[in-house]
């Protein structure tokens, strides 16, 4: 029995080692090297890259990224919870709705973000439509600001909130709500006192699944934010592209990973065990 278990675990373990631990080790190695004169990297070994990470400039960028990601996560939750509730109570149409939630994944994220540019720009569909209706005279500045960045993040990661929420809500015993009603709770009270606490694990999982990729986002701030205000993902990306400073980029991303882990452990406390 035990041997069987080992055999079944082997593929997943191999994938974890090959696709996760080995690249992480490589990044760890890079982060302690010195960048080449023009490109590339090599010895001598150094911790100087880590020292540079603790520049207040990067701290400010990181704080901004935290705020934008937290706002996006909160919006995803506000939009995702009613949607997940609706789907979980739609009977036979559940699968259809779930597929609709996942439908955007059928096309590339990059293409979908470009589509948003076509929608939001001055001569884009939304402005043209509003102008035709006579609602506005001058085009609304919808693109290239923080609002557009948050929109892009919420749009991109909403499914990651809906799916875990749906998974918890689907398992929720409807008799509990009924019992709450029998005991005199109005629907709103039943929702706040019964449904919401019971789907807390789904909320935590969804929040983590949305918050972390938001924090590392670089496409959305570049394309929808117009590169006017950067997130920490852009700083990391720049190190591997225009700055050609791989060791610093590696150190920055490792520190970021460590901070996210610590923040998660602190925020979720003992409950982080259900996630990690």
């Amino acid at each position: 029995m035990n041997r069987l278990r080992t055999w079944f675990l082997a593929p997943a373990a191999t994938v974890t080692v090959v696709l996760f631990l080995i690249p992480l080790t490589v990044i760890l190695g890079y982060s302690a090297m010195t960048r080449g004169a023009y490109f590339g990297l090599g010895p001598p070994w150094t911790l100087a890259n880590y020292a540079r990470v603790f520049d207040p400039l990067y701290g400010a960028v990181l704080w901004r990224s935290f705020v934008l990601s937290a706002v996006s996560t909160a919006l995803c939750l506000t939009l995702g919870l009613p949607l997940a509730l609706f789907i979980s109570r739609s009977g036979k149409r559940r699968n259809l709705y779930l597929n609709l939630v996942m439908l955007p994944f059928w096309t590339s994220f990059l293409v979908r973000i470009y589509a948003w540019i076509f929608l939001l720009r001055d001569t884009g569909l939304v402005n043209a439509f509003l102008q035709k209706l006579g609602v506005i005279h001058d085009p609304l500045p919808m693109l290239y600001n923080d609002g557009a960045v948050i929109l892009g993040l919420v749009y991109g990661y909403l499914p990651f909130m809906v799916l875990p929420l749906y998974a918890t809500l689907e398992r929720l015993d409807p008799f509990l709500i009924e019992a709450a009603a029998d005991l005199g709770a109005r629907p709103a009270t039943a929702f706040w006192k019964v449904t919401l606490p019971l789907c807390a694990p789904g909320i935590r999982a969804g929040a983590v699944l949305v918050f972390i990729p938001c924090l590392g986002a670089f496409l959305v701030p570049d394309l929808l934010g117009g590169g006017k205000s950067i997130m920490i993902g852009n700083v990391v990306q720049n190190q591997f592209t225009t700055a050609r400073d791989w060791p610093f980029g590696a150190a920055l991303s490792l520190v970021l990973m460590a901070l996210v882990m610590l923040a998660l452990l602190a925020a979720l406390g003992r409950r982080s065990e259900d996630l990690l």
């Binding site: 960048r35 080449g36 004169a37 023009y38 520049d55 400039l57 990067y58 400010a60 960028v61 901004r64 590169g227 006017k228 205000s229 950067i230 852009n234 700083v235 720049n238 190190q239 225009t242 700055a243 050609r244 400073d245």
Partner: peptide
């Protein structure tokens, strides 16, 4: 021309400052 490491680093930090 390609800038040597020190100049490139100086510019990248200034770029991050401009962007943020």
């Amino acid at each position: 021309r390609s800038l040597p490491a020190a100049g490139q680093r100086l510019r990248d930090r200034a770029w991050t400052e401009i962007k943020s």
